[in-house]
Amino acid sequence: MTGPSLATAAPRRGGGVLAPVALGVLVLVVWHVVVVAFAVPAFLLPTPLAIAQQFVAQFPVILSTSAVTGGNALVGLVAGFLIGLVLAVLAASSRLIAELTTPVVLAASAIPIVALAPVFTIMFGSTTEIARQLVVTVVVIVPVFVSAARGLRAVAPVHGDLMTSLAATPWQRARFVRLPGAVPYVMTGLRLAAPAAVIASVVAEYFGGLQNGLGSRITSAAANTAYARAWAFVVASIVLGLLFHLGGTLVERLVTRGRPA
């Protein structure tokens, strides 16, 4: 009975990928033409072609620096995820802990990461990755804590009544309803935190320490007037951020599989 409307809806799916790709190509072409036609100086904006050439020339370096920056992002992401989750569970289980932790974590969300990076570098020394991983951890804790805490509070009234009618203990309520019910919220927090971890990892490198990551390569290339090279590392950072975003989305999909959207 609903055949015709379904049939017309089906062929539109391909447009979902094609449209943004076409737009991206168009932007690159216009970019190139504008830079060449108006003779824009390279320190303002190099051509996409020059950036691509640098990307290829620097590819081995890009791989090794991406591994360092990505590694820091991953360590911080995992640590921040676990800490944020544990804090949210503690906050949900005790009013006292909730009143102690919630304002502190929310205040942490107001900390500009630029303010932390140099301080951590001095605290932990400029020859370790710990300072950078710590910056990422702080950045990740907040979205994970906020969304996990919301999920742990969001118990449907009917589920609350059901567990009361079953005379469930507080631990049984947590185990059967609150914790599994919070999983989609926790996963949303992880998905939001994953690309933010890469941003934090790159930016943390702007403030000294080892010169082995994408962020430090961007600053040193720019300082040496190698603008196209700086842009090539920026592109690598974007790719790394996208990879983390995809990874977060994939984990979210896998964990919440079988649930209604």
Binding site: H159, D161, L162, G181, G258
Partner: peptide, 14 residues
């Protein structure tokens, strides 16, 4: 007693 509500109240992850 057993109870059933207007909403089924099933746990969607089970």
């Amino acid at each position: 007693y057993g109870i059933a509500f207007q909403q089924s109240g099933l746990l969607e992850w089970r």
